[in-house]
Amino acid sequence: MPISRIAIGNPGEASRPDALKAALAEFISMLIFVFAGSGSGMAYNKLTDNGAATPAGLILAAMAHAFALFVAVSVGANISGGHVNPAVTFGAFVGGHITLLRAILYWTAQLLGSIVACLLLKLATGGLVAPAFGLSAEVGSWNAVVLEIVMTFGLVYTVYATAVDPKKGDLGVIAPIAIGFIVGANILAGGAFDGASMNPAVSFGPAVVSWTWTNHWVYWLGPFVGAAIAAVVYDTIFIDSTHEQLPVADY
């Protein structure tokens, strides 16, 4: 069982050069991802004068996030594993592929990257603020939790299949593409209901800068539960329980 491989880590791990470089890579990748993803939403709002959401806007958001995540994962893959998502990091931790202390380092870097990206967007656009994630009128908070669980399950399951599994073979080459595609597809499926976050850091940055916290807990609980389920399911059923722990570069 992957739970048996969960490790706290060495207290000195957070000061190791490789860990600090990995955290910096996560910070930069998250900054790139949130700046492009949230920036595309702000650009759409400007072009439509903050008009009602349209199918074209949803497609734009899906494409921008898919493209940006493909790049963000690719540039961080050889340094930190290219998590670019606290939920992905949590899934890797549950599967025993990263220690808790390194995960905390990643989470800190990811959240800071998102905040800085939103602050840079505010500075670059003359004071415009990236809108915080929110629920549509017909969607309750627990409906959104279920939606986030399912979408994040699909994302982390894809990460495990294409980047974590030792048997991935040539699939590892296309991992960033597959990860970007599943996020884009999930935005098309859930974007009209709760914004389709799947990523607590992506929700956290706009919430901090706009200071809007309504239903913010949804975007933590759902992704973390979905990531944990995906990690346990894939690691238990599809990865040999005797495999060695992967190096951090491979998650």
Rank of each mutant, 00 (worst) to 15 (best):
V208Q: 04
G140D: 09
A192D: 06
V209P: 04
S203R: 00
V164T: 12
T54W: 04
T242S: 11
Y219V: 15
L69C: 01
D165P: 01
F35P: 00
N10P: 07
V209S: 02
N215K: 10
F224A: 12
G12L: 08
S29L: 03
L47R: 10
A132I: 02
G222R: 13
G113N: 01
E138Y: 08
P200G: 08
C118R: 14
G169H: 02
A163Q: 10
A68W: 03
N215Y: 07
V218W: 09
C118V: 15
D165A: 03
W107D: 06
G96F: 01
A161E: 04
A192R: 08
A227D: 14
Y160E: 01
L155I: 02
W211T: 09
I149W: 03
A230E: 14
S197F: 09
V159P: 00
I79T: 12
G91I: 02
A117P: 14
V209G: 03
K46H: 10
V146R: 08
V71M: 15
I179P: 00
V145M: 13
N78W: 07
I115L: 13
N85Y: 00
G91N: 01
A64V: 06
A144T: 14
A189W: 02
L24T: 15
G12C: 11
I8F: 11
K46F: 11
S136V: 08
C118H: 12
